[in-house]
Every structure is written in C-alpha cells, then in structure tokens.
Amino acid sequence: MKPVEIHTPLDQQTIKNLESGTMVALSGTIYTARDRAHQEFQKLLEAGKPLPFDPSGQVLYYAGPSPTPRGKVIGAVGPTTSYRMDPFTGLMLEAGIRGFIGKGKRSQQVREQLVQWGGVYFATFGGAAAFLHTRVVSSRLIAFPHLGPEAVYMLEVADFPIIVVNDIYNGDLYESAISG
C-alpha cells in the first residue's frame, strides 16, 4: 500500500481526502504536546493570549521524546496514549489545529468534534520510537522548558508514517478492526 503524501499545514481539500484506514506519509512542521502542555495551552487561550505558534491548520503530536543524545537531532519519539488529551481537543480545534497524532482510542465527544470542525485523528506506530526518530529532520524546543519531556517541541518531519483513525466522516479504524 503506497501512502498518501501530505504536508502541513493541512488544508480543507487534503482533509476531505483522508479516510479512516488510509496510510499517510506526513512532511513539514508538527508540534509535540502532552498532558501538561495542553493545560498550559488552555490557560493561555482562556486568558485571551495566543499559543506559542500559529495553530491554523497545524498538527499536534502527542509525544514526549527521550533526551537528545549528543550529535543527534532528537531521541526516541513515539506517540503517547491520546485519550488523556480528549478533554482539551475541542479547544484545540477551535483554536485552529486540524490534525492530531497519537495512539489509542478517542472519546465519542472527540469524534464528534472532529466531524464538526473538520479535523483528523491519526495514529502512528506506538512503541516504535527509535524508528520514528529517523523521520525527524530537526527539532527545537519552543515553549514551557520547565516541563522537561512534556515541553513543546517544533519538529520538522519527512515522510512521517501515520494512519487515519478518525476522519471527518465519523469513521473509526479501531472500531472497524474489532467489528470486522
């Protein structure tokens, strides 16, 4: 199966073409954010302040990399379990984010929010963090350095392998897996 190649930021047309189960090779800029970073984002937005980057059409990667060894771009960088970010996803979509990469199931509410706002939830290969580190071209810490591995990193990725789990048509790859 040849993956569909897409670039960030995501536009409407790209999102429309993505269906649950589609393999995708993603290139461009993505932003890491886990539990604590989402809390910080929420505080900023509620105070009427901007996020540390322009969120329009952008993609969040639920990940906290291992420390960068000397001479490398980044350490191991696989996805963390996504449901912990469910309570924040509506807010992120409202702010303009259109893609989320993680692993594991999302709530019914998040699935509805994705349909409503036109966003996509992707999974990548959980636990294949050494492999995924080879698809990261550059990384830069851009916010909340005090959070350590939970800080926000801007990553430049090339052919980062992801799979559409929840599309804008209410499809769900994980559900099809156990009902098929």
Binding site: M1, P69, A76, F125, G127, A129, A130, F131, H133
Partner: peptide, 28 residues
C-alpha cells in the same frame, strides 16, 4: 497489509534502537 507493516516496523525498530543507541521506546 497494515498488520504486516506494523510488525515489520517493530522489527526495524529493534534494529535501529540497537544500531543507533536510541531507546526502543520514548517511554523508558
């Protein structure tokens, strides 16, 4: 295809972790 590719990726991950001394998983 997806299941085979996933397992191939996990095998490749083991190779890369060892060769490049990057941990198997970021959650150590």
């Amino acid at each position: 295809g997806i299941a085979r590719q996933t397992l191939d990726t996990l095998i490749l991950n083991d190779d890369i972790a060892k060769a490049e001394q990057v941990p198997l998983c970021q959650d150590c």
